[in-house]
Design a protein around this nucleic acid. Structure first.
Length: 518
DNA sequence: TTAGGGTTAG
């Protein structure tokens, strides 16, 4: 009977059937709790699994299975909690559990817990095999402790592509793409498509399009004999869309077509995003309409495209179509929808209330920012203030900025005063918001207040992150920071700049004189 | 049972 019920469990995919089998297990006192747990975890029903675990007398194996289950079902907090409970109950983790635990730690960016698990692996004498070591590198890398990851790599006798790529990926996510490149060059084994893609992505994320493209070309002719796959193309397209680089984006789109790289949902979405961010929103829509297997991210990308191009009616219509197709929106969808409600206060109020009531979503600071902006611009300043007062989360600088902008638009200096007091009393006032306040005072001639705020900003050492601009000339991207003199043509650039300023001033004088002519 | 990829706010 035992093996018959076990087989029955293994072949069950419906909860109702599993409930029946569970009843049989209880009635006959069969020792199948661990199997039941495994089946439930496989089906992703962690609540049921947790109930079974609590009411049964858990075996060591059951503890381990639960840890695995929580990690696999994106519940790393419970996974780590379970591990601590397990230790309190004097139960040891099995070798197979450690990678899951490390994965749970990296998902929570919990370096302390990760280090503790690492220490336990050593203390309890488990073998640090290739698989566990790779998971350790991954954990340290994801927790931004890439130097620890490097230490693990140094101590490994055998390394495979996963070991190398985990650490290269760690350097990339820490913004150290040159260190990633160094390791990539040092690799003693054949570099697979993961390694190439990770490094290409590193350059792409830094906006270094030329280096990214060079690496891509190098990949095509490399002795590794690795071709790009969908993930590689996604990285390349995303870099193009972030830099509005239509020409290169189109080239990659053609490459995908000519080389018949499989167009999965992610790659299609990256294409849609690239075209819409590069101003080709109609092309994006054609792709979107012809795409099979659309998911929520695809809908969101298309919505974002419309909103960012100011095509708000199209965005609202697309959202209606999305609801008609019974696609459930998420937080990102609703940020887009609220942004698309610009000028439509009543619709905005409705959509904001729909967040919890209709879609079961808790409004986040981004949604409040949209609403404050919408209400503030339309002159509903008191309502905007009330909304901020009733927020269950702390308002951020974007919200204060939106409120102050509304004060400026509607000339409500009293309210700006009140907000200003609140802002300047905070220990770390946002630079941009302080300048906004100072500009409001300047617009009504309150120069003493302007000076006061500038002084406060200086005293509190509030720093503005450096603004950056760039231009591509003959395939090379030139980047500029404020008062930057590092560019090779810096002297010539500043001379031309001064020439343009003088030229414009002269034009302005001529125009003024013409106006004054009788 | 480990590594890379898409969508948010002034």
């Amino acid at each position: 009977m035992l093996s018959w019920v076990r087989n029955l469990l293994n072949n069950s995919t419906h909860i109702s059937k599993i409930c029946q089998i569970h009843a049989q297990i209880v009635i006959h006192g069969l020792p199948l709790d661990s199997h039941l747990l495994e089946t439930l975890i496989h089906l992703g029903n962690l609540d049921y699994a947790s109930s079974v675990f609590k009411i049964s007398s858990p075996t060591d194996y059951s503890w381990n299975v639960m840890i695995k289950g929580y990690t696999l079902n994106a519940s790393p907090h419970n996974s780590v909690f379970m591990y601590n409970e397990m230790l309190r109950n004097d139960v040891r983790a099995s070798n197979f559990t450690y990678p899951f635990l490390l994965k749970a730690c990296s998902a929570r960016f919990a370096i302390k817990e990760g280090e503790q698990v690492h220490a336990h692996v050593v203390k309890f004498g488990f073998q640090l095999d290739l698989y566990v070591n790779n998971t350790l590198i991954d954990m340290y890398s994801k927790c931004s402790c890439v130097e620890y990851a490097h230490r693990v790599l140094d101590e490994m006798r055998d390394r495979d592509e996963v070991s190398w790529n985990s650490i290269i990926s760690g350097y990339v996510s820490c913004g150290e793409v040159e260190n990633a490149r160094k390791l990539f060059e040092e690799m003693t084994i054949r570099r697979n498509v993961f390694c190439w893609t990770t490094l290409i992505n590193g350059y792409g994320k830094e906006g270094r399009l030329v280096r990214m493209f060079e690496l891509f070309l190098q990949m095509l002719v490399s002795a590794d004999e690795v071709g790009p796959n969908s993930a590689t193309m996604v990285c390349l397209l995303t870099a193009c869309s972030n830099l509005c680089e239509l020409k290169l984006g189109r080239w990659f789109a053609l490459f995908i077509h000519v080389n018949t790289i499989p167009l999965n949902a992610i790659l299609n979405t990256a294409l849609i995003d690239m075209y819409s961010k590069c101003g080709q929103v109609e092309k994006a829509r054609r792709l979107f309409d012809g795409m099979s297997g659309k998911n929520l991210v695809s809908w969101n990308a298309m919505l974002t495209g419309y909103v960012q191009r100011g095509l708000l009616e199209d965005a609202i219509q697309l959202f209606c179509l999305m609801r008609y197709k019974l696609v459930k929106p998420n937080e990102i969808t609703m940020v887009n929808v609220l942004s698309a409600c610009a000028g439509l206060v009543e619709e905005g109020r409705l959509q904001f209330s729909n967040l919890p009531l209709k879609y079961g979503l808790s409004p986040k600071v981004e949604h409040y920012a949209c609403m404050v902006d919408l209400l503030g611009r339309a002159g509903y300043l008191n309502e905007a203030i009330e909304l901020v007062k009733n927020m269950v989360i702390l308002p951020d600088s974007i919200i204060w900025g939106a409120l102050l902008s509304a004060c400026r638009i509607h000339g409500d200096i009293d309210l700006a005063d009140k907000i200003g007091e609140l802002l300047l009393s905070s220990p770390d006032p946002n630079f941009g918001v302080c300048i906004l306040l100072s500009n409001i005072y300047a617009s009504v001639g309150r120069w003493k207040d302007v000076a006061r705020i500038r002084r406060l900003v200086k005293e509190k050492d509030t720093k503005k992150p450096s603004g950056c601009s760039w231009i591509e000339v003959d395939g090379v991207v030139h980047t500029f920071l404020v008062e930057d003199t590092t560019h090779m043509g810096s002297t010539q650039i500043y001379e031309t700049h001064q020439f343009l300023i003088n030229h414009l001033k002269l034009k302005e004088c001529v125009l003024e004189l013409r106006h004054k002519e009788p």
